[in-house]
Design a protein around this nucleic acid. Structure first.
Lengths: 160, 160
DNA sequence: CAGATATAGTTCGATGAAGAACTATACGTT
DNA sequence: AACGTATAGTTCTTCATCGAACTATATCTG
C-alpha cells in the first residue's frame, strides 16, 4: 500500500465523488446507486404527506389493483408479508387506504385506496413526474423510454 | 369500491405479479423494484463469504481508491457516515479490509483492502458477472451498455 | 370425515441504515 | 494566539425490513 502525494492537476478529481473502478460496468452496482440516490432525493422533497411518499410505488399498485390481498401486494413491491403489516397500519391510520375482509377467504384482507388516498396519490404522482425530469436530464425522451423498458425487462427476468 | 367476479379468461393474469398501473412508466418505480429484486437475488446466491457480497459495491470503491477516508466512501456508496462504521467493523473483522490513521489529519482513517480482501472481491466480481447475465437476458450487449450509461447519467444528475 | 399440509396476516426479535449528539481535530477569522 | 466554526469517526436511539414463529383458515389426501 503506497501513499502518493496530491499534485495540483488532480485537485479537481480529489473533490469528486469516488468511483467504483471496474464495478462501474456492472448493472447491479449502478442500479443500486441510482436507486439509493433517487429515493433519497424524492423523499427529501417532502415535508408533509406523512409516510406516503415513501410508499408511492405500493400505493400505485393498490390503486391499479383495488381489493387485492396483502401477500399479493407484498410480492409486487418486493417486500416480505410481515414488513407490509406496519406499512399498511400506518397508511390506514393516515386515512390513505383501508383493509377489509374478503368474502372468499377468511384469512385474507383486501386493500383499497380511500378517496383521500386517491388524492394523495395524485399529488405525489405529479411530484414524482417532476422528480423524473431531474433524473433524466440529458437523456432524450426516446432514450428514457428505452431505459424504462429495459428496466422492465430486468424486472421480468428477475421474476422468472 | 366494487367487487368483481373472476372469469376463466383472466385466471392467468390472476396468478401474475400485480402491476403498478401508471407508475410503470416512472423511472423511479422501476429503479426501485429492479434494485430490490436484483439485490435479493445476488445475496441469495451466497451462503459463504460472510457479509462481503452485500458490500461488493463498497469494496469495489475501496479497491479502486485505496486509502481514502471513510466519509468519502460513505458518500460514494450513498450511505451516512454512521452507517459505514458497523459495516467497516464487520469487514475489518473478516479480514477483508483495514483502517489506518493517515498522516495529514488525525481525525481521519484511510481504508485499504487486504490481500484476502482482494481475492474475495475477485471471486464476488466473477459471481456478479454471472448474476448480470441473468439480469440482462433478452437485452442485447449494445443495449446493456446503453442501459448502464444511462444509469450513470442518472447518477451524475443526482449528484449535481 | 380425519389428518396432514399449506397459507394469510400478524407478532416479535434481530439486523441494517438514518439521524442526533458526541469527542477530538482541523480550519478560518480577528 | 484566542475563539468560533466546521469536520471525521463514533456511539446511541429510532425506524424499516427480514425471518422465524404463531393462530386461524384453507386445501389436499386417503
Amino acid at each position: 500500500m503506497t501513499t502518493h502525494k496530491t499534485c495540483q492537476a488532480s485537485e479537481e478529481t480529489e473533490n469528486a465523488v469516488l468511483r467504483g473502478g471496474e464495478l462501474e460496468r456492472f448493472l447491479g452496482y449502478r442500479l443500486r446507486l441510482a436507486q439509493i440516490l433517487s429515493y433519497r432525493k424524492f423523499e427529501e422533497s417532502f415535508t408533509d404527506h406523512g409516510v406516503a411518499p415513501r410508499y408511492l410505488g405500493l400505493l400505485g399498485i393498490v390503486r391499479a389493483n383495488p381489493g387485492q390481498l396483502q401477500n399479493r401486494l407484498a410480492e409486487a413491491v418486493g417486500l416480505q408479508r410481515s414488513s407490509l403489516v406496519a406499512i399498511l397500519d400506518r397508511l390506514e391510520k393516515e386515512g390513505i387506504l383501508e383493509r377489509r375482509p374478503i368474502p372468499d377467504d377468511r384469512r385474507a384482507k383486501g386493500v383499497w385506496l380511500t378517496e383521500h388516498g386517491e388524492s394523495v396519490v395524485a399529488v405525489l404522482s405529479r411530484a414524482a413526474l417532476e422528480h423524473e425530469e431531474g433524473l433524466t436530464r440529458g437523456i432524450s425522451p426516446a432514450d428514457r423510454m428505452r431505459l424504462i423498458d429495459m428496466l422492465g425487462q430486468v424486472i421480468d427476468n428477475l421474476r422468472d
